[in-house]
Amino acid sequence: MSQWVIRGLRSGIVTTAYPRSAETAAGVTPGLPVGGELGAQAAALVQRCPVHALQEAGGRVSVDYRRCVHCFRCARGVDSALAWQQSYEWGSRGEAAPQDSLGDPFRRSAHILVVDAGDCGACLNEVKQLNNPYYNMHRLGFFITPTPRHADVLLVVGPVTDHMRVALKKIYDAMPTPKRVVAVGACALTGGVFADSFVSAGGVHQVLPVDVEVPGNPPPPLAILHGLLVAVGRKPAASSTSVHAAAGRP
C-alpha cells in the first residue's frame, strides 16, 4: 500500500489556480465564437449555423451562446469565419426570473446533486472531471451528494426526456430550500441538437425554474465550475450573448 502513497506524493500538485487566477493551459476549453463585423458575408455565415445561434443585423453577426453546439461550421470550411475566444467563464443567469445566488452560508460549502435528464455522456463526463486532481472542486467547498435531502444545488444535464420528467420534478421537490438549479450544456438550455421534440422538453427551463445556465456542448469543467461559483455568489454571472467584436478573423 505504501507504494500508492509514494506514487501519489510524487505526482505533486497539478490543481488549477482558478478561480484565484486564470487557467492558461491548452485544451481546457473548446472556446466559443465571437460575433463580428462580416459585411456582405454575414448572411451566408448565419445560414451555416444548424441551430440558429447566429443572428445578423447590418452585416454584424452576434452569437446566442445558449444555442451553440460547437459544430465549428462558422469557423471551418468557410472563407470569412468567426473568431473563437478561448474563454470558459460562461455561467450566466437563467432567462426567466432567476433567483439571486445562494449567498454567505453556502459560499464555502454547497452540496450538489447531479441529474442526468437525457445527456449524451459528455456533459456528465465533464462534471466528473471536476473531481479529478486538475480541478479538485472539493477545495472550493463543492461536494457531490447522491441524495436530494442534502442538496443545495441541483445540476441538470440533458434536454429533459419525457421518461425523466417525473424523476426530475420529484428530485427538485425533495430538496430543502434554499435551493438553486444550474442547467449545464446546450441540451439543458435549449435542447441542443435534439431541440424540443415529441420525446424531450427542449431544456430544463420547461420543467423547473433555472437560476444559472452554463452554455457549451459540452461546457468544459472550468465553465461548469464557474457556473457553480455563480450559484453560490463567488463569481459574477457572464452574458449569454456575444459582444460584437470589432472584426472577424480573416
Binding site: 505526482s11 491548452a26 485544451g27 481546457v28 476549453t29 473548446p30 465533464e126 472531471q129 486538475y134 459540452p218
Partner: peptide, 23 residues
Amino acid sequence: AMLEEELLRVSGELSGHRYLFGL
C-alpha cells in the same frame, strides 16, 4: 483521472474540441 484529463486536453489542443466535435 489525471491521464484522462490530460488526454482530453491533448484532444482539445489538437482538434479544438475535447470530444473531437466539428471535424
